[in-house]
Every structure is written in C-alpha cells, then in structure tokens.
C-alpha cells in the first residue's frame, strides 16, 4: 500500500511536467503574443521586448530555461501583474476558491447522497419521482442562470442575503448553492442508480433471508457497494470545485482562482497560465490518488502492491 502511494506520488511529477509542456506548446502554436494588442508595435520596440523576455533565443533554449525554473518550483513573475510572482498570485487567490469549493462539495455530498439513498429505498414513490425530477432540473439549468436567479430572489427581492462580494458567512450561501447544485443533482442520481443496482444483488437477498431489518440490510450490506461509483466521481469533482469556477466567481464577484485563470489566458500571461495549469493538474492527480486509496478501504477485493 505504502509503496503504491509513493509510486503514484512520484508519478505526479513527470505527469505535471508533461501537462506543462503540452500547455506551453499550445500557447506557442497559437497566434498572437502577450505584448501585442490591437495596435502594431514599432519594430525597435518589439525587438527590445523580445530580447528582454528571451523570446529572441531558439525555442529549445526558452523551453529548457522555463522547465529548469519550474522543476525548482519557480514559475517566475506574471507578465501582466508586473512584479508579482505566479506562486504568490495562486497563494493569494486559491483560498477563496477553495473555501467555496469545499463547502459546495460537502453540501453536495450531504444532500446528494441522502437524496439518492432515500430515492432508491422508496423507488417509484412520490419522493423518488420528485427528487429525480428536481435533479434533472439541477442538471439542466446552467449555473450562470441559477446564480443570477438566486441573487434576484434572495438578495434583490427578499433582502435576505448579500448579492455578491466576499464578506462573512452570509455572503457564502448563494455562491455555494449555485456551485453545488449540479453536483447535488448528479450525485443524487448516481447514488440512486448505485444503490438500486446493489439492492438487487444476491447478497442483499441473503441478508434479507437472514431476518435482518431493512435498515441494517441497507446500511450494513448495501451502502458500501452502492457508493463505489459515487466515490470515483467525487475525486475529480472535488478537484474541479477547488479550482474555482469562472461563472460563479464572476456572478458573485469573488476574487478566486478561476477568474484569474481565465484572465491569464486572455492576457496570454504565459507564466501564470503554466503555473495555474500545473497547480490544477497536481490537484486532480492527488484527488484521483485519494479516490484510489479509498477504494482499497471500501472494497477488500482491491489490494495494492
């Protein structure tokens, strides 16, 4: 088990470097440049800029220099936010995204799992139909519609909650709900399907034949098998929730990482793009590893060596 984890952790480094390389290549292939805006620059000015940023050197020298810095953990300074190290920008903005992300994740787990389990238990009941209809709605309504809608109702009509910005717990409620809605819906459906599948299996019939009551059958015998498909979804889901979403951050004016990421792409801010991409890819890989480890605890048939 330990050697499995170590191996996977070590594998993250080359994988992240590969992701960075591909991203770098894509940025370079795309036309345009960070210093070019609508107006064409005088040739002398452009030459100076290229010289200053090392763009006049052959591509492999530039690539090697960049990789050498990255391997040492230094992504350099942002080109747009002058003088600010990429690491510092990420460190500053990530906590906002992470706070909302974690809260949305917990909310999604709590509501999604419970709803799914109850719906599966009471299959074809009004609760089942009702919750699955709502979750279909949750999956279909995009969050750029849901967010403003919630703001309209709870901030502008009812005056219960602040419409935007960061400040206090009350300001977290609407963004967290907006962000988690689609995950709640998806988790509820996934849990329901997983539970239904398991509750039809032979060993559940065995458990019932032993005289166990439905609650024990469900929680002791059914749940573990039922949530395995859910677990494989929650790892990548947490990663993408933590990374922040542009839409929710835009709608609620939250200074999170998602916003910065999009800005960096629009600005062709190469060091910042690479920094965030590397950070996110590591995040995804770590959570996937966590999912794989938790499989081992959930299912005794899975052993790592």
């Amino acid at each position: 088990m330990l050697s499995f984890i170590l191996r996977r952790l070590l594998l993250i480094i080359p994988m992240a470097l590969l992701v960075v390389t591909v991203t770098w290549g894509l940025i370079r292939i795309a036309p345009g440049n960070f210093y070019i805006s609508e107006r064409a620059l005088p040739e002398a000015v452009e030459r100076n800029i290229r010289e200053k940023y090392g763009l006049d050197r052959p591509w492999y020298v530039q690539y090697g220099k960049m990789m050498w810095n990255i391997v040492r953990g230094d992504f350099g300074n942002s080109l747009k936010y002058r003088g600010q190290p990429v690491n510092e920008i990420i460190r500053r903005h990530f906590p906002y995204s992470a706070t909302i992300g974690i809260l949305a994740y917990l909310l999604a787990l709590l509501v999604g799992l419970t709803t799914g389990i109850i719906a599966a238990l009471k299959q074809n009941s009004p609760f089942d139909y009702g919750s699955m209809a709502v979750s279909m709605l949750g999956l279909s309504v995009p969050n750029f519609v849901l967010g403003p809608l919630l703001v309209l109702v709870f901030a502008l009509w009812l005056f219960w909650l602040p419409p935007a910005r960061w400040g206090g717990i009350s300001s977290l409620i609407l963004p967290v709900i907006t962000l988690s809605a689609i995950y709640i819906a998806y988790l509820a459906r996934l849990t329901r399907a997983g539970m239904l599948e398991v509750m039809r299996s032979d060993y559940i019939r065995t458990a019932r034949a032993k005289g166990l009551d439905e609650k024990t059958v469900l929680l002791k015998h059914g749940l573990r098998g039922g949530i395995i498909p859910v677990v494989s979804f929650t790892g990548p889901a947490l990663a993408s929730l933590l990374a922040g979403t542009v839409v929710v951050e835009k709608v609620f004016a939250i200074p999170g990482l998602g916003n910065i990421f999009i800005q960096s792409v629009l600005n062709r801010d190469e060091p910042l793009i690479l920094g965030i991409v590397a950070f996110l890819s590591i995040l995804v890989m770590v959570f996937n590893l966590l999912v794989d480890i938790s499989y081992g605890f959930l299912d005794p048939r899975i052993r790592y060596d």
């Binding site: 299996s201 032979d202 060993y203 065995t206 034949a209 032993k210 005289g211 166990l212 002791k220 098998g225």
Partner: peptide
C-alpha cells in the same frame, strides 16, 4: 422466522455472500 426457523442457501455462492464484509 427468516434465518432462525427457516434458512436458505442460494444458488451462486460467488455472489450470495457480501464481498465487502
């Protein structure tokens, strides 16, 4: 009565036992 006075053995022992317990 189930499991105490009437007990059952099923066809497929590979799937009739809970793999997680």
């Amino acid at each position: 009565i189930r499991g105490k006075r009437i007990a059952m053995i099923f066809q497929d022992p590979m799937t009739s036992l809970n793999p997680f317990l």
